[in-house]
Design a protein around this nucleic acid. Sequence first.
DNA 1: GATTGCGGGATTGTTCAACAGTCCTTACGG
DNA 2: CCGTAAGGACTGTTGAACAATCCCGCAATC
Lengths: 240, 240
Amino acid sequence: MAASELDPLLASLGEARRARRTVMSTSADRAARLLREQVVEGTLRSGTRLPEVRLADALGVSRNTLREALSQLVAERILVREEHRGVLVATPDTTAVRDVYAARLVIEPAAVLHGPALDPAHLAALDAAVREGTTAGDRGDWPAVASANQHFHRAVVALSGSERLVAQMELLLAEMRLFFHQMGDPEPFHAPYLEENAVIAGHLRAGRRDEAATRLAAYLRAAERQLVAAYEQRTVGGDG
Amino acid sequence: MAASELDPLLASLGEARRARRTVMSTSADRAARLLREQVVEGTLRSGTRLPEVRLADALGVSRNTLREALSQLVAERILVREEHRGVLVATPDTTAVRDVYAARLVIEPAAVLHGPALDPAHLAALDAAVREGTTAGDRGDWPAVASANQHFHRAVVALSGSERLVAQMELLLAEMRLFFHQMGDPEPFHAPYLEENAVIAGHLRAGRRDEAATRLAAYLRAAERQLVAAYEQRTVGGDG
DNA sequence: GATTGCGGGATTGTTCAACAGTCCTTACGG
DNA sequence: CCGTAAGGACTGTTGAACAATCCCGCAATC
């Protein structure tokens, strides 16, 4: 077993190929991504049923592969499966919102406070998200503001340096967007936080982690209150 | 639409039924749970391939349903899928360990510090996990100590009050156990922390959140260092 | 008139069989 | 020693099938 000097190269090449293969998209993954996108963008509204045959037909995949995709999204809490009744787009209630915010209140300020050194790439991502939000707000494109907000909070969690934590955060954020779509008019839920995002990014750029963290925590608590209040008003008022 | 007085009862019943149906186990879920258990318990070692036909046969399900289960576990990072090569048990490396600990360092101390009021149920869960660990340690059952440790940290995150955060933590902990199995002898990785768990639980019982959090953070940093060091020593020494 | 019982259609849960595409090993030839 | 062709094993994906279950409407009943 004489090890030649190019063994490391071979190993790294093999690894790269394996990585690419791991990341390549299988048919079920593509279907899942497509559906997820439709749900997050609001095209597929909360509560709509997803019949397997019709949907598989529409997506151009077989029912079996579609079921793989659906299972994936059920695990992400974007869809809900009711046995023998099928899957439907989840409709988060205030319990879900409180739960998500409890998680966010743990994760986000802590990421700001205790993440590794603030490196330029992370700060740039934050600034980019802030700019994305303000320009979208200037042209009144509130769905785009919602996306920008999502990007901002993803960037915040990225400060933790943990890819896994970011992935988990994205699940929470996707669920939040589902909730927003239920609430209708997105402006009052996103507009107030554009300024706030800028302030927090500014604090971080200046290295003031404490201020950023406390401001972020207050921000999250306020957003939770606002959402829960709006939801309860809505369900008290409306009938369907 | 005259509402009778038993409407609320009907509504609650319907909700309960839906909840049960949502939680009830489909065949794929059962297969996934079984496989997960085998992996976490160490029966299925890192790197072992899981051929679909043989495995489906062994589990008594069809290949299609098995694939649903496998997809689920791939999403949980317990298994890895390499396209056209199949699924195999993940082998976390030090990168994964660093990533997981970065996430845990954000989540766990923050859950201790900023979770809602420490209620008796949570404190009882912590104590139970501590006792479970010490008795297992007394009889030298180190795999059981590993389980107890997992329960302790789950209880810590439960302080956050977020069911979702607990679920996400469980993914991280499962991945850690995969790593432990790779390292062989579990005693040196779990024994030192039994005492530490007891101290932290004591702090929390007395309401000293700050001490508990800082102690927990130090604990996590130490564990990460120990694990990474052991791993690198192991891979420098061995050849396969 | 409200309630119960009973099809009947639609949909899910699950299986089986098949086939092309890809990967791995092995043997062969230069 | 290197490339390569052949063959086998396995995955990715599909289509069809069948029992179980659910839902809706209609008739029978009290």
